[in-house]
Nucleic acid binder design. Sequence first.
DNA 1: GTATTGCTCATACGTTCGTTTCAATCATAC
DNA 2: GTATGATTGAAACGAACGTATGAGCAATAC
Lengths: 216, 216
Amino acid sequence: MSNTPQRVPDTKERILDAAEKLFGQNGFTATSLRDITAEAGVNLAAVNYHFQTKESLFEAAIARRMEPVNRRRIELLDAAGANPTLEQILLAFLSPLFVRHPNEAIGLMSQILATPDSFVRQLFKKHLAGVVNRFVEALQQALPNLTRTEILWRLHFTAGSMAHLMARGSVLPEISEGLCNPSDRPAVLARLVTFAAAGFRADAWGGDAGLGGEAA
Amino acid sequence: MSNTPQRVPDTKERILDAAEKLFGQNGFTATSLRDITAEAGVNLAAVNYHFQTKESLFEAAIARRMEPVNRRRIELLDAAGANPTLEQILLAFLSPLFVRHPNEAIGLMSQILATPDSFVRQLFKKHLAGVVNRFVEALQQALPNLTRTEILWRLHFTAGSMAHLMARGSVLPEISEGLCNPSDRPAVLARLVTFAAAGFRADAWGGDAGLGGEAA
DNA sequence: GTATTGCTCATACGTTCGTTTCAATCATAC
DNA sequence: GTATGATTGAAACGAACGTATGAGCAATAC
């Protein structure tokens, strides 16, 4: 059980590949194990042999992509020195998602953020909360005028832009006459950083925003 | 079929209420008709009698909330005159979601944006595309320095922030030590408008954003 | 060789899903 | 009153789901 030979028949990885593709595209509930094994070209029972349950498979797919992403995030944040700029922080947080296996990492990431099941929220805590706190600290240092609350909200907005962007680049092309091409990833990343950085630098909201009792 | 008596037994509305609550919370696939009829306290067959299919019920729930929201959006945009400010445009687009039946309208709205099923994307086109185009025009007028492409991207980011915020205020509290309270809706709306307005006003991205070939 | 272990296969279990059926009910029209 | 047509109820349909089982196969250990 511990250090067995491991013939590397790679069916385990084929399952993970198919799982991250389909989970990322369609979400957890909308993806069946039969979809995954069909995509992977393996037997249905293999998924229960290598991973025990569907939830475990989801977590394994998350872990495989999220761990290198998070490592790279911390790496980039550290490399930016003791006083990173806002853009450096945002790039450290966002750019690892766009590299190497972008479609998959990105899809899974937004599924973590978007799936309301309680076990997925635990995955969020496990794989994301620590990194997020590290970045909140860096943002507080870079933006001393903002309260921690304000920073959390704006990071939340940024994460939403990212998540929305990634899971479904599908929505936008339909209304944009092809002007938005989500597959040009470096450009998308740059646009997102530009947008988010400006949002973070906005003066903190002080009271009324011109609602006039609209949202009472 | 046309002008039948209509005893208003309100079981149809009870189904819609339950549907918009549960669809908004858990999404389309993760919500079963039995969940809905249990929540509504009606018989399972009633949903197939009043609405024919699960997809039709989803669309009916969307339509009931989206139509007044979209009407109010256009109303506010028109009320802002011929040259609305960026904040007026964003408020016109976002504030109707936070009024009256906010949790439900908001949850359904983000489900439209987040569900990859093809029929949901058709709902997006049907209920959202027209309004979105109207707002893109207004934004182009208010921000003449930005290309249409740039505006579409930033509206996309804003929609993502909104969608993420709404469907799952659940994620943030867990890492924010309670500092973010999504139920204080006027404050959330104001923060979102502040963030998005600053993002829209950012200088358009011109070329490189400091990636250094990271996302090659 | 045989034994053992790691893995894959076909198949089936029990449950839940969306949908359907049809008899029972109710308010109104006559 | 009875007839009519709109609604509701209990029960069931076939299909798809996640999971489990046990035989079969390949490779190493002895």
